[in-house]
C-alpha cells in the first residue's frame, strides 16, 4: 500500500482519534505478520564528537563549544567490552562528521576491533565514496545508517551551514554507493522537527522505493529521530507531537511491511513501549550518547549528542520485553567474512 503526498497530509492533519487507532491496528497487524513479536536490541557507541559541520539542530555542531573527544583504539576496546558485557551483540558506531579527525583508517581500525565483540557492526558516519565504503564492508562492517535529515533542499541549506554536509546530493546519493560497496543493510531516515513532516515523509518513502527497486537485495530500515533537548536546551525548530510521531511509524510500517523500524532512546519509555506494538522492530538499550560515556561514570563530564529520555539498562529492557510477551533478539546471525 503506497500513500501519495495528499494521503499523508490528510492522515497527519486528521484529528480523529479513530483514524489513529485504525492506522495503529493495521500497522500492528502487519508487524506481527512479518516479524512476529521479535524486537532486536542494539547499543550506540559514540567514538568521536569532532565535527567539521555546523548543523543548527545538533549538539556536536562545530560552533558549539564542548570538549572534543576522539577515542583511542584502547579506549574503544574498553567501551566495547563494557557494552558487550551487557549482552548486546549489535553495535552502532557513531562519529561526528569530520573527514580529518576520523579518517577511513580510524574507522577501519574501529570496525576490526568491533568484530571481536559483536555479531553485527553498524556505522553512522559521514558520507563516503564507494571505495571507502567497500573497505569498511570488507573489514567487517555490516550496515550503514545515513539520514538525509530533510529532503527539502532549501530547508536543508538553511540548517546545514558549514562543512561537507552542505552538499545535499553527495549525501542523497550515498545510499547507492553503500549498496554498491556490498553492504547488505542500510538505514535511512529524516529528522522530525526540521521541515514539513508530510513532505519529508513522502520524499523519504520515495527514496526508499527507489533504493528497493535499484538494490532489491539489501535489507532496509527506517528511523525517525525527533529533535529534542540537549542538556535541557531545546534545539528543535518545530514540534512534532506524539500523535504525529506514532502516525509516522504506522505509515512507514503500512507502506513497507518488511523493513526494520528503529527507535532510539531519544523517546520516553512510555512512547517506546507502545511503539514496539505497532511497527518498531529495533530499539537501543542501555544507551549512552556521549563519547567514552560507557566508561565515564560522571554525567557532568559528558556531552551527549542528545539527552537520553529512556535510560533503562539492557536487563531492564529485556525484562520489559518479556513481560509484554515480546521476543527480544540480541542477535539473529553469526559472523562470516564479508567478501
Amino acid at each position: 500500500m503506497h500513500f501519495d503526498l495528499a494521503n499523508i497530509q490528510d492522515i497527519l492533519s486528521n484529528q480523529d482519534p479513530r483514524l489513529t487507532e485504525r492506522l495503529a491496528q493495521e500497522a500492528a497487524r502487519i508487524t506481527r505478520q512479518y516479524f512476529g513479536r521479535a524486537i532486536s536490541l542494539y547499543a550506540p557507541l559514540y567514538i568521536s564528537n569532532y565535527c567539521s559541520c555546523f548543523c543548527t539542530y545538533c549538539g556536536f555542531n562545530n560552533h558549539n563549544h564542548i570538549p572534543r573527544l576522539k577515542l583511542t583504539a584502547d579506549q574503544i576496546e574498553q567501551e566495547m567490552q563494557k557494552i558487550a558485557q551487557s549482552g548486546i551483540e549489535n553495535i552502532l558506531i557513531l562519529t561526528g562528521e569530520s573527514y580529518q579527525m576520523t579518517p577511513l583508517s580510524y574507522l577501519k581500525e574501529t570496525v576490526l576491533i568491533s568484530k571481536k565483540y559483536f555479531s553485527s557492526t553498524a556505522l553512522e558516519i559521514h558520507p563516503l565514496e564507494e571505495e571507502e565504503y567497500r573497505e569498511l564492508y570488507l573489514a567487517g562492517a555490516d550496515s550503514v545508517t545515513l539520514y538525509q535529515e530533510t529532503y527539502n533542499r532549501s530547508r536543508y541549506a538553511e540548517v546545514h551551514l558549514a562543512g561537507k554536509k552542505k552538499d545535499y546530493d553527495f549525501r542523497y546519493q550515498a545510499p547507492e554507493r553503500i549498496a554498491r560497496a556490498g553492504f547488505r543493510q542500510i538505514s535511512l531516515g529524516i529528522l522530525l522537527g526540521i521541515s514539513d513532516l508530510a513532505e519529508d515523509l513522502f520524499a523519504l518513502f520515495s527514496h526508499l522505493r527507489h533504493m528497493e527497486q535499484t538494490f532489491p537485495g539489501v535489507e532496509y530500515s527506517l528511523s525517525f529521530p525527533r529533535l529534542r533537548q540537549i542538556k535541557g536546551k531545546d534545539l528543535s525548530l518545530s514540534r512534532i507531537d506524539d500523535i504525529s510521531f506514532i502516525k509516522t511509524i504506522c505509515l512507514a510500517r503500512i507502506s513497507f511491511p518488511r523493513i526494520g523500524i528503529n527507535l532510539s532512546t531519544r523517546e520516553s519509555p512510555t512512547l517506546r513501549d507502545h511503539a514496539i506494538e505497532l511497527g518498531v522492530t529495533r530499539i537501543s538499550a542501555g544507551s549512552n550518547t556521549s563519547v567514552g560515556g560507557y566508561s565515564t561514570a560522571d554525567p557532568e563530564r559528558q556531552n551527549p549528542q542528545f539527552d537520553i529520555a529512556d535510560s533503562r539498562s539492557v536487563p531492564e529492557m529485556l525484562r520489559m520485553l518479556k513481560d509484554r510477551r515480546f521476543d527480544p533478539v540480541l542477535t539473529d546471525w553469526r559472523r562470516i567474512d564479508n567478501t
Binding site: 495503529a24 491496528q25 500492528a28 500523535i243 512510555t270 505497532l278
Partner: peptide
C-alpha cells in the same frame, strides 16, 4: 484498511 476489534493501541496518546 480494515478495522479489527482488538485491544486499543493508541489510547495513551
Amino acid at each position: 484498511i480494515s478495522a479489527e476489534a482488538s485491544s486499543p493501541l493508541t489510547g495513551f496518546l
